[in-house]
Structures are given as C-alpha cells and as structure tokens.
C-alpha cells in the first residue's frame, strides 16, 4: 500500500469520528479521481457533479461502517463512486431482466477449496489473471467495469446474443476467481 493510500485510511477513520477538517482533506485528495469515475460512467458533466455530491455524502455517513473493516480505503472510495453512478444509470435507463436466467451457465461450476487469500493484496494479481482470459472476454470484463455497461449494452457492443454475453462474463468471473485463489 502506498503512503497516499494509508493516508486515505487514516482520513476515513477521522471522518468516521466526524472530523470535518479530515473530510475536507479527503475531498481534496479523492474528489478528482471520483469525479473522473462519475464522469466516465454517467457521461454528463452536470450529472457527474450531482453524483459527486451524493458520493461524498455517502462517504461521510459510511465512514464509520467502513473504518472498522480494515480493508484498503482507496478501492472502497472508488466503489462508492462507481456504485452510485451505476445505480443512477440503471434507474434512468432500465435494462430488461435477462430472460430465462436459470443459472444453467454456472449450474455445473465448482470452485476448488479456497485459499486463505483474503488478507493478501491481490490488486496486481488480477492483471495476470485477466491475461489468462480470452482477449475479447477480458475486454468485455474491463469494459463492463470501467464504463458500467449492462449485459444488454455489452452484448450489442460485441455483437453477440445477450445470453452468450452473460455466459461469457460469468465464466470469466469464475476463471478469475480460480486464478486469484491459486
């Protein structure tokens, strides 16, 4: 973890204790990145500005719950921004539920015994695991994450049926998990 990331954790601990100066500092450090996230997913400046407000209000209220969990703070901050933006996107542009989603594409899937890997920082390992995926599928995973695309939009992008895209991504997730657990 970098020094900057450690500062994020320390600041969030203080924010949990309602330290407004720490909140101010956290904003100045994290807002440009979180604004970039909102902007990329929402693709509208005004929407992104509104979203950024909501994100920091969620950070203020969620800091207490987060700070005792001892996970790294930076991914959490990014997750708050991504989740809020994606929720907004989905509520505005509803996607049809995947029809006939009986889970058949993962019904026969199993995962080996889990390694005690929960505490390890796996941030970099994901890069290697992504390379083990078929390149088009890796691209779909990345695009889904970065742009906040739905299954439907991904299927259109890649010119494949919805069910195919869903199976692709689910199998990719299982492969990633297996690779990370190794």
């Amino acid at each position: 973890m970098t020094a900057a990331h450690e500062e994020f954790s320390a600041l969030i601990s203080k924010v949990a204790l309602r330290d407004r100066a720490a909140f101010n500092r956290l904003y100045s450090l994290a807002a440009p990145k979180l604004f970039g996230i909102c902007l990329r997913i929402l693709k509208d400046r005004t929407d992104a500005e509104d979203a950024l407000q909501e994100v920091f209000i969620k950070v203020w209220h969620g800091a207490e719950r987060f700070s005792a969990s001892h996970t790294s703070a930076y991914p959490w901050l990014c997750a708050v921004a991504r989740n809020h933006s994606i929720d907004l996107l989905r509520s505005r542009k509803p996607v049809t539920e995947v029809l006939g989603d009986d889970g058949h594409d993962i019904a026969d899937a199993t995962l080996g015994p889990e390694e005690a890997s929960l505490l390890q920082s796996e941030g970099r390992r994901i890069d290697r695991c992504m390379q083990e995926l078929d390149s088009e599928r890796a691209l779909a995973v990345k695009k889904a994450y970065v742009e906040g695309l739905s299954y439907q939009e991904l299927a259109e992008h890649h010119g494949v049926p919805l069910n195919t895209m869903r199976t692709w991504l689910r199998r990719s997730l299982l492969k990633l998990r297996e690779c990370m657990d190794r």
Binding site: P32, F35, G36, Y74, C78, S121, E122, G123, R125, I126
Partner: peptide
C-alpha cells in the same frame, strides 16, 4: 479489492 487496479482506467478530473 481484486478489480481495483481497473480503477487506473479512470482519468483524474478536477471537479
């Protein structure tokens, strides 16, 4: 946490 390195794709934009 696992997927967080993909956050590098996001640009930094001053609000």
């Amino acid at each position: 946490q696992n997927l967080s390195s993909l956050n590098e794709e996001y640009e930094i934009v001053a609000p």
